[in-house]
Simulated assay, not measured.
Amino acid sequence: MLRIIVLGAAAGGGVPQWNCGCAVCSAARNEQPELRSTQASVAVSADGEHWFLINASPDIRQQITDTPSLHPKGGKLRHSPIAGVILTNGEVDAVAGLLSLREGWPFEIHAHERVLSILKSNSIFNVLNPELVKRIPIEAGAAFEPKLPDGSPSGLEIEAFEAPGKAAWYLEGIADEQPGDTLGLVVRSKADGDSFVFLAACSMVTPDVAARLRNAPLVFFDGTLWRDDEMIAQGLSRKTGQRMGHIAMEAAIPALSDSGIGRKVFLHINNSNPALLPGSPEREAAEAAGWLIPSDGMEIKQ
């Protein structure tokens, strides 16, 4: 049986964002601290003892501190139950947390060659000792079982698939979009077949995406914005969701309404998104359609 913990539910910058005074960020700082959220990441384990992180948020140190299952074992001078990190893209909010995992503990990084090339090109990631931290390429469509630090099987099977998205924003104007910029994951327990789909960045529900999600028992899906022009309307940005590589919730909800998904969870939710506010029309619409807006530390049951 898989154990799945939402370490962070927010999009880049978290909630509240450091320099933002929007309605959600203001409420999170003041009268509604329960709205506070770190940047998106999920931890998954097949045995409840060894954990793999999906993406390494810049907030990873705080997320580990707030998650007892990820604490070092008592009596150990150095230890971590984190056995590996699976990267689904090269955005800052997916890879920056790797730098906080540099304290000499073995684990594996699994990522598409496209993302591994980004890490290789930036020497700051060399703080991760290559003798301890192996970088292993993911091939879309080829299932693999990540290993534990001692080489034993993890009990997980992971299959990546290409998803519509875009290159990391810091590569805009430098590198063209390429295969591997955005991946979805199907994660399964080899013991009992429990599974879920992780797709926290997706610009549209294509026929291939719809097929990947159909009848899945659990899906984590891109919840960045409620409407495509949301950040423009609020004066926060000149970019639409599509321009940033994200489908709006109000488009995703009807597109996936007949998909047969068991549990539907939005993730990577931007501070501008009014669905974060309990009682808002947007929140009520999402929940009425069967979607969950998670909070940090929530363990998701299938």
Rank of each mutant, 00 (worst) to 15 (best):
M1E: 15
V6G: 01
A10E: 07
C20Y: 02
C25N: 11
A27F: 06
R29L: 11
E31W: 14
E31V: 12
Q32W: 14
E34F: 12
E34I: 09
A40E: 00
S45W: 05
D47R: 13
N55T: 04
N55D: 10
P58M: 15
Q62S: 15
H71L: 13
H71W: 15
I82G: 08
A83W: 02
A83N: 03
G84L: 03
G90E: 08
E91A: 15
E91F: 14
A94I: 06
V95I: 15
L98Y: 01
R102E: 08
E103R: 14
F107H: 12
I109W: 07
I109Y: 05
A111Y: 09
R114H: 14
V115R: 09
S117K: 13
I118R: 11
K120C: 09
N122S: 13
V127Y: 01
P130K: 01
I136D: 10
P137T: 04
A140S: 10
G141Q: 09
A142N: 10
F144P: 07
F161M: 04
A163I: 09
G165R: 04
A167G: 12
A168S: 12
Y170A: 09
Q178D: 06
P179Q: 11
D181M: 11
D181N: 14
L185H: 08
F198E: 05
L199H: 00
V205D: 07
P207G: 05
A210W: 03
A210Y: 07
R212C: 11
L213K: 13
L218C: 13
F220A: 00
D222F: 03
T224D: 05
D229E: 13
Q234L: 13
G235M: 12
K239D: 09
K239T: 10
H246M: 02
A248G: 02
A251E: 15
I253D: 03
I261L: 01
K264H: 06
L267K: 00
N271M: 04
P274K: 06
A275K: 08
A275D: 08
L276K: 10
R283G: 01
A285Y: 03
G290Y: 07
I300R: 00
